[in-house]
């Protein structure tokens, strides 16, 4: 063994050693530990007690809060796609054909380099009822301003808008990279054939941009389903739990209520959902990769 460690065959393993150790302690072990915990009742003070599938059964049959959080999760993920993707696509179209690109890019990227606590506290003031900036502007236009973060029926919409604001820059970059990847010769050929603006857009730009659009849609969907930090600091899940997404529900169940077994079960159910979406994504890109060329 000692002889092997000094041989040239062992060299790559020396370079991989830190990553292998990390992978075992901070990846494989936690995944297994969480799976085990999800079959127990555990408050971290007493040793865990095996309860079989009880946590899963409780969540799926008796828990009144679990399915609403799943609904909130889907609402959030779908909302960020429905508002964020067309918006960033439109901005990307304008951006790729504009002058002063580095200026625009700098401005659109400001939220991306801002920590999420600052994002939350910037928007808490902008969205404040009556005297927040947004409602002041609405009042100038003679419109009534709602309680953006306090009205249960629109709080999630506000969270979605803040998230779209945060993410706009990175989606814009992905789309503009996709637009720049479209070969100039297609456009030249179309122009020589006398195609109009709309024709070029609908027959060249849109079809050739499809892989990028699908990539952004699916990665945003997956990350949106897993996301909860903004809700944690901006609304703390309220009002009336309307912005409590499943991952936030899990976090609070674990670190506020110390129901670690049940929280682990929540994590695994949500993970299963995200995993299925990921598999669909992989399948899609294997096909998409062939179709695109």
């Amino acid at each position: 063994m000692i002889k092997w460690l000094g041989s040239s065959k062992a060299t790559p393993f020396w370079f991989l050693a830190p990553v292998i150790a990390f992978g075992i302690i901070f990846f494989i072990l936690p995944l297994g530990f969480a799976l085990f915990t999800s079959f127990t009742r555990w408050d971290s003070l007493q040793p865990p007690r095996w309860v079989g599938l009880d946590n899963y059964l409780y969540l799926l049959t008796s828990d009144r809060r679990f399915f609403p959080t799943l609904f909130n999760t889907l609402y959030f993920a779908a909302g960020t796609l429905a508002i964020g993707v067309p918006l960033s696509l439109g901005i990307a179209f304008a951006f790729t054909q504009s002058r002063f690109q580095s200026l625009w890019r700098s401005l659109y990227w400001l939220p991306m380099v801002t920590n999420v606590v600052a994002v939350a506290y910037i928007w808490i003031f902008v969205l404040a009822p009556t005297h927040g900036l947004l409602n002041r502007l609405l009042a100038m236009a003679g419109l009534p301003g709602p309680g953006w973060l306090t009205d249960p029926s629109i709080a999630m919409l506000s969270v979605i808008l803040v998230f779209v604001w945060m993410q706009l820059g990175s989606n814009m970059l992905l789309f503009s990279a996709g637009l720049n990847n479209i070969d100039e010769s297609y456009y030249e050929a179309a122009r020589l054939d006398g195609a109009g603006t709309w024709q070029v857009f609908s027959t060249i730009t849109i079809p050739l941009l499809r892989p990028t659009v699908m990539f952004v849609l699916i990665t945003n969907l997956i990350s949106g389903m897993s996301y909860f930090t903004l809700m944690l600091v901006l609304t703390e899940g309220g009002p009336l739990g309307r912005t409590t997404v499943t991952a936030l529900y899990m976090y609070e169940m674990a670190f506020a209520d110390l129901r670690l077994g049940r929280a682990s079960a929540v994590a695994y159910i949500l993970f299963a959902l995200v995993f299925v979406l990921t598999l669909i994504q992989l399948r899609f890109f294997r096909q998409g990769g062939v179709d695109a060329h």
């Binding site: 991989l16 992978g23 302690i25 901070f26 990846f27 072990l29 936690p30 995944l31 530990f33 969480a34 915990t37 971290s44 997956i222 990350s223 897993s226 909860f228 991952a247 899990m250 976090y251 674990a254 670190f255 670690l260 929280a263 682990s264 994590a267 695994y268 949500l270 993970f271 995200v274 990921t278």
Partner: peptide, 25 residues
């Protein structure tokens, strides 16, 4: 090993939060 590295990127952080906290503890 390479497949593992690619696959591991797909695991969302939320599933690791609880166990990692207690592994450190």
């Amino acid at each position: 090993a390479l497949q593992f590295v690619i696959g591991a990127q797909m695991f969302p952080f939320f599933i690791l939060i609880i166990p990692t906290f207690f592994i450190l503890r």
